[in-house]
């Protein structure tokens, strides 16, 4: 009992960020930017779609951000960041060549192996498209492993839509059904108006509920209504996966901030099947 473990080998300290440099920067919306990060050593941090990294700005602090790029590009990461707090404001202001510390990847990602041979229904609200973009890029790279693939995406307004280039490419693919909606239109918007969960009724013929894996990420209220719509149509709770967001200080399961009932979102999530969340899903302020 006295010596549960020896001191860990040097270099194994999980609190220490790995150096990266900003190699590209794309403005998505007024307050949101996608950063491309490159490791000077060329070694990446191989991740699974749905996992997240802790991004550190020198002297300011660290925040958890989902990986939003393609997972199999050595040494390159993509993260979409919205300016909300002190750290994210500095992240979106970074320029090409700037230094960023990265720890990760952390947590459990989307169940893409489980979804093979199934219909895949992706439901994203707002910035929730970021972790799902990574999943979709991987699915499209191995498109023949999946049955029908449907993407439903909602943003507050046309100006809040992320990944416009991707959206127009995805729109043209015959092997992908994409529906986009906004809460509030502007005069140029020709698309749908309304909330994302309402789109599910429109794509019923694109998925067979019992053979569907649903991947959902967005604001909690949007996810709650999405789960109800999916349940109504018979998608099983253990095939509805949600990605949750909580305050995180360590991402190692040690700081205690990200607890949701018995789960630590950083290690048991961020992606979890609704069947595990269901007992606590109606409890406010958990």
């Amino acid at each position: 009992m006295r010596e549960p473990t020896g001191a860990p080998p040097p270099g194994a300290n999980p609190y220490i960020p790995v150096p990266f440099r900003v190699s590209g920067r794309r403005r998505e919306t007024a307050d949101t930017v996608t950063l491309r990060l490159r490791s000077p050593s060329g070694d990446g941090l191989p991740f699974e779609p749905g996992q997240f990294m802790m991004l550190y700005v020198f002297g300011v602090g660290e925040v958890p951000v989902s990986a939003s790029g393609a997972p199999r590009r050595a040494g390159i990461l993509e993260h979409t960041v919205r300016a909300v707090g002190p750290v994210t404001r500095r992240l979106v202001a970074l320029r090409r060549g700037d230094w960023v510390g990265v720890r990760g990847p952390f947590g459990r990602g989307w169940p893409l192996a489980l979804a093979e041979g199934f219909d895949v229904l992706i439901v994203a609200g707002g910035l929730g498209l970021a972790p799902l973009r990574s999943a979709l890029l991987q699915i499209l790279a191995q498109r023949d492993r999946y049955r029908q693939v449907t993407v439903l995406y909602g943003a507050r307004s046309p100006a809040d839509l992320l990944y416009r280039l991707d959206l127009s490419r995805w729109q043209q693919r015959p092997d992908l059904e994409l529906r986009v909606t906004v809460d509030r239109a502007d005069e140029r918007w020709r698309g749908q108006i309304g909330v994302v969960p309402a789109l599910i009724a429109q794509v019923e013929r694109h998925f067979e509920p019992a053979r569907t894996v649903a991947l959902v990420c967005g604001p909690e209220v949007m996810m709650r209504f999405t789960v109800r719509e999916l349940q109504k149509r018979g998608v099983p709770d253990d095939l509805i996966y949600l990605s949750l967001e909580r305050n995180m200080k360590c991402a190692l399961g040690l700081c205690g901030h990200c607890q949701f009932g018995p789960a630590f979102i950083c290690k048991d999530g961020p992606v979890m099947p609704f069947s595990r969340l269901a007992p606590f899903s109606e409890i406010r302020e958990l």
Partner: peptide, 21 residues
């Protein structure tokens, strides 16, 4: 010990203090 050494991540600061006590 269970919390800080039980994994998946081990807290190296606790581990060092603990193993020397």
């Amino acid at each position: 010990d269970r919390v800080l050494l039980g994994g998946p991540f081990v807290d190296p600061y606790y581990a060092e203090r603990r193993s020397r006590a």
